[in-house]
Write a protein that binds this DNA or RNA. Structure first.
Lengths: 206, 206
DNA sequence: CATTTTAGCTAACACGTGTACGCTCAATGT
DNA sequence: ACATTGAGCGTACACGTGTTAGCTAAAATG
């Protein structure tokens, strides 16, 4: 009942997606992705592409979704590390940087399309980043007992710092990435201290 | 001796640059910029383009330079506001956001090519951002007497936050941009507080 | 004034692109 | 068993692209 036919279709759909991913590189971004080349790498005729996607844009949005999914899986991984002890900041930043290193093409896609030229793409990526931020806010409120507003301010700043560092990490080699990771950890801790100081102001007499 | 000929050449060179700027929009980025369309808008034949630039890439790098120049002019403006009193943070963030609002295509170009697909572009933009950071470090060391290392950490974090906010401001309307500006100011102040707290740790007994 | 330089032109090229049309043939539905 | 569906294919078209080669005329040079 799985449908040997639908099964095959899903398979070549994946072939297309993976072909597109492969063609994403440092020199060759989504914008300059060609239907024909993607189809060629997937091993189907150019026209058969339309059996799976209406547009290249539709393919691209699927890529973003895949990326967002991977990103959220990363977050869960990170939370696992927290559960079994250790600095939340360090483990979060480290796993994030590992994601950038291991899934470079996906991260680059997210990064580029965040300020890219398709509104649909920008919104899709922003949605993923917002997820990211929202979960951080929840953590700060639930576990660290920050007032919501301050938690939002802080989470937003942290996400900006971490994503910015991720962008710089893309081009970096392992050593440089290590340095960036430590730098980022220190910066996030700095933000946390600042948020804490502000919180103390709110209720000066402990 | 100005050279009526060289003068004319410089003029159409500017025409080309401005034509390229005009074609940069939310939907149509540098990557999909066409030599022929640019030439058309500049009012010259496609082939004449090569009298001024060897590549589209060379044109693009000129655009980045123009953008960086404008950004540095903005910084000087901002520093003037500081000289005649007022919060340095507020005036810096405000003028930065004004830049994003008024010179949107240029800022978008910088933002996109920062993580774009041409290494030359990435380096060019990074160079501009580094200028930005370096001047902030100098300020923090000279005026606020932070130790250099802490100043660098702080400046880098601030630049990341501000640029991230700028990226979000691109799509925003005036009201939303105002909100973003206030948010960013608060975040930068938060970072400053954090840096201050860390500095106090370094020399606990005042 | 004679010569050289050069910004801009027209014509032409080879190429890659997205997409429409109609065919095949194996998996599905009845 | 038969009819229908649909994934994939080959052909073909119109179009925009970057780039070369060679001409023209005006400015620069001496």
């Amino acid at each position: 009942m799985t449908g040997i036919r639908a099964q095959q279709k899903e398979k070549t759909r994946r072939l297309l997606i993976e072909a597109a991913m492969n063609q994403l590189s440092a020199e060759h971004g989504y914008a300059s992705l060609s239907l024909r080349e993607v189809a060629r790498e997937a091993g189907i005729a150019p026209t058969s592409f339309y059996r799976h996607f209406q547009n290249m844009e539709e393919l691209g949005l699927s890529l973003v979704d895949e990326g967002g999914l991977a990103l959220r899986q990363l977050l869960r991984q990170s939370r696992l590390q927290i559960a079994r002890g250790g600095s939340i900041i360090r483990s979060s930043v480290t796993t994030f940087m590992a994601f950038v290193a291991n899934q470079t093409p996906i991260f680059r896609l997210l990064l580029q399309e965040k300020s890219g030229n398709s509104r649909a793409f920008r919104l899709a990526v922003q949605r993923e980043v917002d997820h990211f931020t929202a979960e951080l806010v929840d953590y700060l409120v639930a576990e660290q007992h920050y007032p919501r507003e301050l938690a939002e301010l802080q989470a937003d700043a942290i996400v900006r710092i971490v994503f910015g560092a991720g962008a710089d990490a893309i081009d970096a080699d392992a050593t440089e990435r290590q340095r960036l990771t430590e730098l980022t950890i220190a910066q996030v801790r700095m933000v946390a201290r600042g948020a804490d100081a502000i919180r103390q102001l709110g209720r000066p007499t402990k």
